[in-house]
């Protein structure tokens, strides 16, 4: 029944999906945190930049961003992100696009977490002489992260599924393989089901684990 799978590297394709997810998650966690810091910070120029970035990027379709990384950044501007093989270039461009896009959502999730930290604790931190960056790093962000593990899990699950858009610029992740198989094989429903199942295998544990983590690290008030 499953002999139509012969000759396709199903695991390899999903492995690439995992890699795309991992690096983009890492990138957007860092960049999203910086954006959130800018948006709550005291410097007007940074606040304006953070707000503009989130507003613009959040409202552009991911496909447009991913296609732009290839057509705009690479083919027009020659940005190859330090790689010389096509597959590596496209992979890195896809990670860049996914990171740029997902960061906006990480930033907003984190900002809602920052709003759960009582202002009094910020005043107390400043009253013992902590600088703004120290206050953010030591007092505000640790508590903000703990309160948004759940929302961040949602962002991560969305990111996992959004990696399929990387197929648009030829990254050989799961969705690209699915398209190829659908063109070549007759088992349309079965192929779709297999890929759907593959994604559930990736996202379901993420949701469960992070849900448990959210309960464990919640700050008692």
């Amino acid at each position: 029944m499953f002999d139509f799978l012969d000759g396709y590297d199903l695991l390899g394709a999903f492995w690439l999906t995992v890699q795309l997810t991992f690096w983009s998650a890492l990138g957007s966690l860092v960049w999203g945190t910086l954006l959130a810091a800018m948006r709550v910070g005291p410097v007007p120029l940074m606040r304006a930049f953070g707000t503009a970035y989130v507003t613009i990027v959040r409202n552009i379709p991911l496909t447009v961003i991913i296609v732009f990384t290839s057509l705009g950044l690479f083919q027009t501007l020659g940005v190859s992100l330090g790689a010389d093989r096509f597959t590596t270039i496209n992979f890195r461009l896809a990670v860049l696009g996914l990171t740029a896009y997902t960061s906006a959502f990480v930033c907003e999730a984190l900002r809602s977490g920052i709003n759960t930290v009582p202002l009094g604790q910020v005043e107390a931190a400043r009253a013992i002489g902590l600088s703004f960056p120290q206050t953010l790093r030591i007092v505000v962000l640790p508590q903000a992260f703990r309160s948004v593990v759940g929302p961040l899990a949602n962002v991560l699950i969305a990111l996992t599924k959004n990696t399929t858009v990387a197929a648009a610029i030829g990254v050989a992740e799961a969705a690209l393989l699915m398209r190829e198989m659908i063109e070549n094989e007759a088992q349309l429903i079965l192929i779709s089901a297999i890929f759907a199942f593959g994604f559930i295998c990736l996202t379901l544990p993420t949701g469960l684990l992070l849900g448990r983590l959210a309960r464990k690290v919640a700050v008692k008030r």
């Binding site: 009582p118 009094g120 604790q121 005043e123 107390a124 508590q143 703990r146 700050v219 008692k220």
Partner: peptide
């Protein structure tokens, strides 16, 4: 400074 609402770092 000591505040009305204590403001200890909760975490």
């Amino acid at each position: 400074m000591v505040f009305q609402s204590f403001n200890l770092f909760a975490h």
